[in-house]
Design a protein around this nucleic acid. Structure first.
Lengths: 214, 214
DNA sequence: CTATGTGAACAGCTTCACAGCG
DNA sequence: CGCTGTGAAGCTGTTCACATAG
């Protein structure tokens, strides 16, 4: 059974990668795949692949491998990609607009249902993108979250206001935040936060490059 | 000494966070800080903070803490943030334009010296941003890298061409790639790759949220 | 008495290696 | 044979605890 198993966080991230690759295989009409092939195409060891699936049950057949359509469906079920997930965006600056226009979200079952900002010059503006949205004031967040049963939000506001806006999101019922502001969020309540800080990534790369060459 | 010490990769990421916080403290006129205070403001344990600095030498004074200005300078030196680092961008789509306009890079010592794309409709277009750039054809990359001594590049092209463009970057002399395309890059040569896949981040959040609530 | 620096204990994730099934 | 599933071993990074310095 899979119920209260202890799943390493990195395994969940890899599950997304497996799914992406499985969809590619399925699109190419492939029927089965071995842990070795799947792992090799993603730079992961075969043992790692089997372990990762092992956290959620038994999907493969010894001597054969994994059936691609079945495994794809099972992984979708685990990640919840089989259902549409509604998300909101707070902060319609440069990054926010790029997020609105990004097609990758819709491909993975995420639907952006609202774009919020408090800049008077932005409110009411119709944004381009897969699904046109009109920018609404941040104060509308509670009603948006309630009416669309939103659980996850994208936070792309300037650093100085990120903490305060994030708490508002949580208070409105959001349970997971993908944070692009370069600050550590301290939030009351049961929330998951995942931060993407572009400058930190760049600094790490720059360090590795110079450490390697030095 | 700090020479051939084995530094955990997560420690380098945290170093960026420490630096950000130290700059905030310095801006507030604070003279010293303890590992406990610095860590607490970032959600890191005090022991972790001391270990991390320990990989690079001894910076603090027992009974007092760390002197903020000195530590800031030392960390800048370690990360190379004290020198300007030139970077190039390949791929001027929605995300690429957001990256051009992003002010966070310049604040951390990174300078975008060129934006490259192969779409004829984009070449020659002047982009807005901190420093206006004219989009150039990707074929120019080798000369750009040579003339500006570029080591690090941002890759924001569509997934199907990412692999090929990445190898071109490496062949042109780039040593570190921040990859936004949702594919695993397999590159010949001594390169560091850091991938940011927004859909993967969202899927992980969605999983955590539903696993928690279920 | 406060706070650093660090070896030692610990935990979590990955790799290994092999039993067992097809 | 080939390949999965999985306990055991190994490794890497984090936490603990204390000697040491101010």
């Amino acid at each position: 059974m899979a119920a209260a198993e202890q799943v390493p966080i990195p395994a969940i991230r890899r599950l997304s990668l497996y799914l992406r690759q499985l969809e590619a295989f399925q699109g190419a009409g492939r029927q089965t795949v071995s842990s070795r092939d799947l792992g090799h195409s993603l730079g992961v060891s075969d043992a790692q692949v089997r372990k990762d699936f092992g956290y959620f049950g038994q999907f493969g057949r010894p001597g054969v491998g994994y059936r691609v359509p079945e495994l794809t469906e099972r992984v979708r079920g685990i990640l919840g990609t089989d259902k549409k997930t509604s998300v909101v965006l707070v902060g319609v600056g440069n990054l926010g607009r790029a997020l609105i226009a990004y097609r990758g979200f819709a491909k993975r079952g995420f639907e952006l249902v609202a774009a919020l900002d408090d800049d008077p010059g932005k409110i009411g503006v119709r944004t381009p993108g897969p699904k046109p949205l009109v920018v609404r004031p941040v104060a509308d967040i509670a009603s948006v979250v309630r009416s669309h049963a939103v659980r996850v939000g994208l936070l792309a506001v300037p650093a100085p206001v990120a903490q305060q806006v994030a708490q508002l999101m949580v208070d409105s019922g959001i349970r997971g935040i993908l944070n692009f502001a370069p600050v550590m969020l301290r939030l009351n309540g049961d929330v998951s936060v995942s931060s993407v800080d572009l400058a930190v990534h760049l600094e790490q790369l720059a360090f590795q490059v110079s450490a390697c060459g030095a």
